[in-house]
Design a protein around this nucleic acid. Structure first.
Length: 185
DNA sequence: AGATTGATCCAT
DNA sequence: TGGATCAATCTG
């Protein structure tokens, strides 16, 4: 099974459009000679220097630098000293924005939560800044399984209460028929 | 509800 | 250079 590797022009668009269009696409990971793929079912958008939930709102630092660069790169960071989160960089160069991959589905079932996705697919900071458009190590491809717009449900982003008004933006997108794990926060 | 865990960032 | 913070998850 294979599909069309998403090119730079896919990523270099408005972040919400990229986020929506990433749903149903396949995250593909090649590690030690084995290739695995998982369908993306939930994402979150982080959009620009004014979005207080976006790491780049704190400025351009070594960590956030990749978000200011070319679209189609991976932004991978360590959170709580234990888990990794995978984002894809969007928009034009110099405009910091990204889409967080929050949940996927593969033959083993649903992998819910960005830390679990990275753990299951062996994604860590060695892949930070990785070019997702080259079909090597890690990429995203279109297998023609994108959901209709009517099946996408939007809600507030998770774990960004510190972001004031920006926390309420409905920038978390999920394919609706996929059951959601209960969350207490 | 509380513990875990370490890189990062900024104020002391 | 220390210490608060954190796009999370696991165990109770």
């Amino acid at each position: 099974m294979s599909g069309r590797i998403l090119p730079v022009v896919f990523y270099g668009r408005k972040t919400l459009a990229v986020a929506r269009d990433l749903l149903g696409q396949y995250l593909v990971r090649k590690v030690s000679g084995r290739t695995r793929a998982a369908r993306i079912i939930e994402v979150e958008a982080y959009i620009g220097p004014r979005d207080r939930a976006c790491h780049a709102a704190k400025g351009r630092t070594k960590r956030t630098e990749v978000m200011f660069g070319d679209p189609g790169r991976a932004y991978v960071y360590l959170i709580y000293g234990m888990y990794h989160c995978l984002n894809v960089v969007t928009e034009r160069k110099e405009f910091p924005a990204a889409v967080l991959i929050r949940a996927v589905e593969d033959e083993s079932g649903i992998i819910d939560g960005p830390g679990r996705v990275c753990r299951a697919y062996e994604i860590d900071r060695t892949l930070n800044c990785h070019d997702l458009t080259q079909g090597q190590l890690l990429w995203i491809e279109d297998r023609g399984e994108r959901p209709p717009k009517s099946k996408i449900v939007a809600s507030a982003r998770i774990g960004v209460d510190y972001a004031g008004d920006w926390a309420a933006k409905p920038w978390r997108l999920r394919i609706e028929h996929v059951p959601q794990r209960r969350r207490t926060r």
